[in-house]
Design a protein around this nucleic acid. Structure first.
Lengths: 340, 340
DNA sequence: GAGGGGGAGTATATCGATAAACCCCGTGGC
DNA sequence: GCCACGGGGTTTATCGATATACTCCCCCTC
């Protein structure tokens, strides 16, 4: 039922190939013919079938970003930046979700989906080393995110340890002595994002010669603001003294600020707070959130360079995977005191 | 170079069709053969080519949500909900961006992309009636969003006028007399989201017998919190008296709260504030934001029902488009005073 | 006048999976 | 002893666009 290229060809009295040539501009076509074809396209309401083109041509000019969930503002902002970057090379970004299924593995179907794209930026947040190890695919893939992952993939991440260290060091330098880590988990020190950021927190303490109290790492989820608020409530309830908070994400920090307000604690006078990710909205919290900027643009530059390298690889070439850690920087606003 | 179904077939000593049957489970296959095929699949690392399947079968079991930009948290949250809903029917959601190009039209290529999906939920925010009118496509499309759009499409939206009316009525009922509209635009009263919500604001005033001052609708963008903050700064700078704010989105409201804090105005004592959209984060602002809940789940139910109706339509069937307005409700939190 | 070049267009094979039709052989009914 | 039946496979055509090789034909050059 849908109009195909041959239908257009027939209507214009030419061959399908000529229609294709007119539409893609790959070969010269006579002006008169060209006009006839375009008229036919218009009259029949012809729409190119990208699926067929993809099957034949092998490329889609589309890159996928696979995120753990659509609702994380962090990934929305990342996606927006990537999309802008891709546009200049005439390519398109789509966002897919569901790296890990409920069984914790990439299901077969989800894996096959990757073939729909020229390349894939795979956020490995929430996946384990094994999840990704099983992911054998011919599709160009660059990993984004913090977990420890198989060496054979290109992998771009931000400097989590350094970011958390910088942030914590600033809290300590501006007078905090008991800095809680919200979202932290001392267990998986070199695996996930929480582990790495918690590590940075520890290092800052060691550097400053300030002792660490395990009670300052309340058990907590890392999903949304509710987890941050709950962590603060718990600290207050259990009467753990604290005068600073390193929130492992800005999303958690949002909840932390809510929790502190609820408890009647003033920010930054009673408690300093610093987040991580520098979300768009963070600047507009009350008070404006101090945070760690993840240096998205640098990460994206690297990730796309590595991806293009894979996409353009000829069959012989053997590229050795790169593992890149991008720089982070401190953004100081109203939830921390000025350095003395 | 990639492994195809025929490669697997050869390795397993069967026909390609049998491999297909094993993998899809569409036809009975002998246990012994089945095992041989699966072994071959494993050994060769075969991955199904969904593009080819799509071309042949005509379906992808994939729905696209087209959003105006990836970074709006509103759409992230919407997408997450839609994705969850689709999963139960074994389908997949991808998020695409870029309805309107910089020329303000859907370009041909972008249009062709729609064919990659079984159906499309198209957010028309930021598009004009004409943009969509030119969009002639055979792909099942349901429109989401506020603008006035061609009748021939199914269209689901929330009750913007009523939401804004409810919100404003509450501000007036709790003592505010000069309610500013941030993000509002009195001009396009029945076109875009800002127009409709501004209309609701007007109606509430009329109902309450409170006069309207055009100075209370400061010129403003609606993109991000910065616009909200700027609007407040402007009101303060130009010494427009106000004791309430209807922010047309929660994102704007975030900026409004920042602007009020900056100006030393207390919320809700000096100024009451109410937003629109009920974002996840809004509950955690300081003070927690009162807002209008857009009733996502109801909208999604309708949208998917309409979309499925189009997808399953046989060639003869002629379905008349539906235009649905979902209910909204007030969520009262800390930025407004309790009703007297 | 023969040969060469190149612009314009066509015919055919192909990308990989699958629907539909068909084939083969053992079994059971009458 | 013949036929219908059906489980388990295979063969072939097809989805729509496009790379490749090829055909014409006109014009220029030596």
């Amino acid at each position: 039922m849908p109009v195909t290229m041959s239908d257009v060809a027939r209507a214009a009295g030419v061959s399908a190939m000529t229609v294709s040539n007119v539409l893609t501009g790959r070969k010269r076509v006579g002006e008169e013919t060209r006009r006839r074809v375009l008229t036919a396209v218009d009259e029949l309401g012809y729409e190119l079938n990208l699926t067929a083109r993809h099957l034949r041509a092998g490329r889609t000019d589309t890159i996928a970003l696979v995120v753990p969930g659509f609702h994380h503002p962090y990934f929305g902002e990342l996606a927006a930046r990537i999309a802008r970057r891709l546009e200049v090379s005439g390519r398109h970004l789509v966002v897919e979700h569901g790296g890990a299924s409920r069984e914790g593995e990439l299901e077969a179907l989800s894996l096959a989906r990757l073939h729909l794209y020229d390349g894939v930026l795979l956020s490995v947040v929430g996946m384990t080393h094994d999840d990704v190890a099983h992911l054998r695919t011919a599709v160009p893939v660059v990993l984004l995110g913090e977990q420890q992952m198989p060496q054979r993939y290109d992998h771009v991440r931000m400097d989590n340890v350094e970011g958390a260290r910088l942030a914590t060091a600033h809290l300590l330098a501006t007078g905090s002595r008991r800095v809680a880590v919200v979202g932290g988990s001392p267990r998986d020190a070199n695996r996930g994002m929480p582990g790495m950021r918690t590590l940075g927190w520890e290092i800052a303490h060691r550097d400053a010669g300030v002792p660490i109290d395990p009670a300052l790492v309340p058990p907590s989820g890392t999903d949304g603001p509710a987890d941050g608020r709950e962590a603060v409530r718990r600290l207050v309830r259990e009467k753990v003294a604290f005068d600073g908070v390193l929130a492992l994400t800005d999303t958690l920090a949002t909840g932390v600020l809510a929790g502190l307000a609820e408890a009647g604690l003033r920010v930054p006078d009673d408690v300093q707070v610093i987040g991580f990710d520098n979300l768009d909205a963070s600047e507009f919290l009350v008070p404006p959130l101090s945070t760690v900027d993840p240096g998205h643009d640098v990460m994206i530059d690297h990730a796309l360079r590595l991806l293009d390298r894979l996409i353009e690889r000829r069959d012989g070439d053997d590229v050795t995977p790169e593992h890149i850690t991008g720089p982070v920087s401190l953004v100081l606003r109203g939830t921390t005191r000025a350095a003395g």
